[in-house]
Design a protein around this nucleic acid. Structure first.
Lengths: 266, 266
DNA sequence: TAGTGGTCTAGACCACTTG
DNA sequence: AAGTGGTCTAGACCACTAC
């Protein structure tokens, strides 16, 4: 039985079938539009993998052949493939080729269902502003924002809901240039939408994810038992100028929220 | 006061000083060794930023000038810079230039201290194997590993300690080809070391981070109060062939452990 | 207008894997 | 020996920003 199982595996490993990419990949490449060629290629390959046209484990065309068939140069093809490697969809081995990672789709849907159902995707998200006031930066806020201790900052505390169910308590601190952000705007739009409308382009977010026991207020606001667990996230966000834009401390209901991360080696 | 503060900020924004890269950057480039040129360049720029030679907010040389001064082509320089952008160290704007992100170092040290002190970096890590047995895959394990329900798998449960202090309870499931991994190896080496010694090159890890109340066993093993919070991580790891290598369910002491993630937009 | 990064090309040579 | 991805070059044109 054990041996049989092993042979099965070996067989599976061997059948790294070379797989012809679907014809749809090679049509309607737009050379004049604003979408980069490498992005068009990457999107098509990704879509072909997502809809099953290219099965998991399949070996796709090599870079040069693909470039010739598409009428594109090798660096362009290479960039498209690299983007998918960085997404964890493809793996490359020198001397071997490029393969589709196994089990990309099914498992994700399995594990994500609860969160997806309750999150912004399906149920209407809404926000209640619990606090909105100018204050002065304590040491943690000051070092996080890169401003002197005692500097004026805007503090906001919001309750995020999805479909009427409370999801998270969000504390955020913003440097003085954003002190005029209106409470009404935050009720209607997300913080990042408000910032975006002011011309702020957020590019980098450094996050620390942890857990702790809920405070009394958090448990009340989130509708969970006193002293039960919350999932926490601390974040410092930077714009495209390299400036700190925001420092946040968030507490999520752990039964309704989790974080997904895909790490790619080397 | 408010107005004064604003002026201060405007001034800071303006002083995006062009900053000459230190001379050390331009010495001893090794063209014959195994380390790619772009990596040598990226490492030097990163080091110059880390040690303060290039201050936060500084604008560094443009790609072409840097290439000429280093005797390297533009694509090589570009790749080096892009790697640092992807790390969240630099930001680029078309028509403007490339700048060092502000507040990269200090804040990280502030927030990381507790975890760093107790983690593998400073205190000796050790592992105690709590369980080690062949079993059959239930539905979650089966879908995660991509094997049929009921397939033989290796289940291991370990207690990870740092300096004698329990950090985490680690449950891992491995497909049948790894069923012969020895308990003794796991006591002495990490799981990934054991796999590496068998020629497995792990390339991708898809992780989900959450929180929940500790089980009774976890609270005992981790030395925390019953019903207090644990930080959880579920992971599926893939090798360079795109095969699933391992499925893990981990529970961490949240006062001693957290996850850091840096997200880079677009 | 000048300077910057973003994209794309058409080659070249190399290291590694398989047969 | 043949095929693959990994690296590197020397250009080119474009879009965007600042002055």
């Amino acid at each position: 039985m054990n041996k049989l199982e092993k042979n099965k595996n070996v067989k599976e490993i061997k059948l790294e079938a070379e797989y012809p990419l679907p014809r749809s990949l090679f049509l309607n490449i737009d050379r004049s539009g604003p979408i980069p060629l490498y992005h068009q290629v990457a999107s098509r390959i990704e879509a072909a993998i997502a809809d099953g046209s290219v099965p998991a484990g399949a070996r796709i065309d090599n870079e040069i052949a693909l470039g010739e068939r598409l009428g594109l140069s090798r660096p362009t093809i290479r960039r498209a493939i690299q983007d998918l490697v960085d997404k964890g969809i493809l793996v490359r081995r020198r001397g071997i080729g490029t393969q589709v990672v196994r089990g990309g789709v099914t498992r994700k849907l399995e594990l994500t269902s609860l969160y997806e159902d309750l999150s912004s995707a399906k149920r209407a998200p809404s926000t209640k502003v619990l606090a909105h006031a100018q204050t002065t930066a304590d040491e943690l806020v000051a070092t996080s924002l890169g401003v002197p201790v005692g500097s004026p900052v805007l503090h906001i505390r919001r309750l995020r809901l999805a479909g009427g169910v409370p999801l998270a308590v969000l504390d955020n601190y913003l440097p003085s240039e954003f002190i005029d952000i209106k409470r009404a705007d935050l009720e209607q739009f997300g913080l990042y939408q408000v910032l975006s409308s002011r011309g702020v382009d957020i590019r980098i977010a450094k996050q620390r994810i942890g857990a702790r026991t809920a405070t009394l207020e958090e448990s009340k606001k989130l509708g969970i038992d006193r002293k039960s667990a919350v999932l926490t996230m601390e974040r410092v966000a930077f714009d495209n100028k390299g400036h700190v834009v925001e420092f946040g401390q968030h507490a999520y209901r752990p039964d309704l929220y989790s974080f997904e991360v895909t790490l790619v080696g080397k």
